[in-house]
């Protein structure tokens, strides 16, 4: 009982339960063969692409901010790579570096505007989202006269960023796992993690406690925009082409993953493990439905229900965590 209750008090409890619930539902009512499903690449690929964006967005949400400009940064990253290294024939590393640099730049703009003004970051990043869409479309039409550009990556870039392992699993999965471990380490094990929680709890007090809240906010925005352009860059290398459109779906998908993962929308509470499982849950619902006998048009209904149920669970688990009092003599530190 003690073990169960201590597991439920974790911010990631609801996401794990959601995942188990969705899998059970698909197996019972959709006739999913779990072995075949586990071996499939489709949902893991989907989760990896989404997860790399959801992780930094989740960190931002824990810190009390949000970034929706990621929706434009994914095509921006892939188009930058394709235009420079494909259309202009520059070495691939130039296109890749430029894509990541563009992420850093837009992240800096988002971060600076957020800390310098009192405008909510939702509105600021809505502005940069729309603006970057315009920039990408115009630049593409102006420079190449086309809204879709091809790119041929050399072998080493393919191996690192755009190969299919075993013919089905994108190599970006490895990057996703590495980044998950990295972000989990930062949030749970370093001082920066404590600062992120404190900032999301009360920005004013965090600043008074000596935390460089402005620099940290800017760094988190740089991280999210750069991760988004990284995903775009990998897609361009994988598919040998880039399109101006696409990426908008990532905005809501990432937010749903993060919220199902137990992050409090108003900040101050959440975990990387939760975001990870939230992303997996989302991917399993969307891609897993193809393995079932259920009509795929229902998948959005399931997503909506999962979101609502997960939020309700998060709410009650958080109450549980707040009201938790260790039993007398359990593990008292005697002084």
């Amino acid at each position: 009982m003690d073990l169960i209750s201590s597991l439920l008090r974790r911010p990631d409890a609801a996401s794990v339960l959601s995942l188990v619930g969705v899998l059970a539902f698909y197996m019972l009512f959709g006739g999913v063969d779990l072995g075949r499903f586990a071996a499939a690449g489709s949902w893991v690929n989907f989760a990896a692409n989404l997860g790399i964006v959801a992780l930094p967005v989740g960190l931002l949400m824990i810190a009390g901010e949000i970034d929706i400009s990621i929706g434009a940064m994914i095509p921006a990253g892939s188009m930058t790579t394709a235009i420079l290294s494909g259309y202009y024939g520059l070495p691939i590393w130039v296109g890749m570096a430029a894509a990541l640099a563009l992420g850093v730049l837009v992240g800096l703009v988002n971060g600076l505007l957020t800390v310098r003004t009192t405008v909510p970051s939702l509105i600021i990043t809505l502005g940069t989202l729309v603006a970057m869409q315009g920039v990408v479309l115009s630049a593409s039409e102006l420079l190449t006269g086309n809204s879709s550009v091809g790119v041929k990556a050399p072998e080493w870039a393919k191996v690192l960023f755009g190969q299919l392992i075993g013919g089905s699993h994108q190599v970006i999965i490895v990057w996703w796992l590495i980044l998950t471990a990295f972000f989990a380490y930062v949030l749970q094990e370093t001082r920066f993690g404590n600062w992120i929680y404190a900032m999301g709890g009360d920005k004013e007090s965090a600043r008074n406690a000596g935390i460089p809240t402005q620099r940290l906010t800017i760094a988190l925005f740089v991280l999210s925009a750069t991760c988004a352009s990284f995903v775009g860059m990998c897609q361009a290398i994988l598919f040998n082409s880039a399109q101006v459109s696409g990426g908008m779906g990532f905005i809501f998908n990432a937010i749903v993953s993060v919220v199902v993962g137990g992050v409090l929308l108003t900040g101050g509470f959440g975990s990387v493990l939760g975001i990870f499982f939230g992303t997996v849950t989302f991917a399993v619902v969307i891609q897993g439905i193809y393995f079932t006998s259920i009509d795929r048009n229902w998948s959005n209904l399931i997503i909506g229900l999962v979101l609502l149920i997960a939020v309700a669970m998060n709410e009650s688990f958080r109450k549980l965590a707040l009201s938790y009092v260790p039993r007398k003599g359990n593990k008292a530190v005697n002084v």
Binding site: E189, T190, R191, G193, W195
Partner: peptide
């Protein structure tokens, strides 16, 4: 910081660390 643990909130901004260099842990 109502949603932080006692230990975490007590040391906000002045966290004790162990380890060295990039592996300095809270």
């Amino acid at each position: 910081f109502p949603l932080m643990s006692i230990g975490r909130s007590f040391f906000v901004g002045v966290e004790p660390t162990k380890g060295w260099g990039p592996f300095k842990r809270f």
